[in-house]
Simulated assay, not measured.
Amino acid sequence: MSTTRIGAVAAAAGVVLALASCGGGGITNSGSGGGGDTKGDIILGMATPLSGSSAAIGPYMKNGAQLAVNEINDKGGVLGRKLKLVVEDEACDPKTAAAAAAKLVTEGTMVSVGGYCSSATLPTLSIFGKANIPMIIPAANSNDLLKGNNKNVFLLNGTGAQQAQAAVDFMKKSGAKAVALVDDNTSYSKDITTRTAEDAKGDASLKIATQQSVTAGESDYSAAVTAIMRANSDFVYWTGYYQEGGLIIKQLKAAGYKGKIMVADGSVDKQLITIAGQDNAQGVYATMTQTPQTIPGGDGWIAKYKAAFNADPGPYSTQSYDAVRVAAEAIKNAGSTDGTKVIKALEDINGFKIFSGNLKFTPEHTLTEGGFDILVVKGDQFVLNK
Rank of each mutant, 00 (worst) to 15 (best):
T4V: 13
V9P: 08
A11K: 10
G14E: 10
A18R: 11
A20W: 03
C22A: 15
G23M: 11
G25H: 11
T28I: 13
G31L: 02
G31F: 01
G35H: 10
T38F: 06
G40V: 09
T48Q: 07
P59M: 08
K62H: 10
N63K: 01
G64V: 05
N73E: 06
N73P: 05
D74L: 10
G77R: 02
L79P: 03
C92Y: 03
K95W: 04
K95E: 15
A102W: 02
L104V: 05
G108N: 04
T109K: 04
M110R: 03
S112N: 15
S112M: 13
V113E: 08
Y116P: 08
L125T: 09
S126F: 00
F128P: 04
G129H: 02
N132R: 10
I133K: 01
P134A: 09
I136C: 03
I136P: 02
A139E: 07
N149G: 12
N150I: 05
N152W: 10
L155N: 02
N157R: 14
G158D: 05
G160N: 07
Q162P: 07
Q165D: 14
A166Y: 04
F170W: 11
F170C: 06
G175H: 03
A176W: 04
A180E: 09
V182K: 02
Y188E: 01
T193E: 09
E198D: 13
L206S: 08
I208N: 02
A209V: 03
V214A: 08
A216E: 11
A216R: 01
S219Y: 07
D220L: 05
S222L: 09
S222G: 12
S233N: 07
Y237F: 15
T239H: 04
E244D: 15
G245H: 04
K250H: 15
A254C: 12
G259N: 03
I261R: 02
A264Q: 05
D265G: 07
Q271L: 13
L272M: 13
D279Q: 15
G283K: 06
G283A: 10
Y285F: 15
T287C: 12
T289R: 02
T289A: 14
T289P: 11
I295Q: 12
W301F: 15
W301A: 08
I302T: 07
K304M: 08
K306H: 06
N310M: 11
P315D: 09
P315H: 06
Q319A: 15
Y321A: 09
D322K: 00
A327T: 00
A328D: 05
N333T: 14
K344C: 06
E347M: 03
D348I: 00
I349P: 06
I349Q: 02
F355S: 13
F355R: 09
S356L: 12
G357D: 10
F361M: 05
H365T: 01
V376A: 11
V377P: 11
G379A: 12
D380T: 10
D380I: 02
F382T: 03
L384S: 13
N385P: 01
K386Q: 14
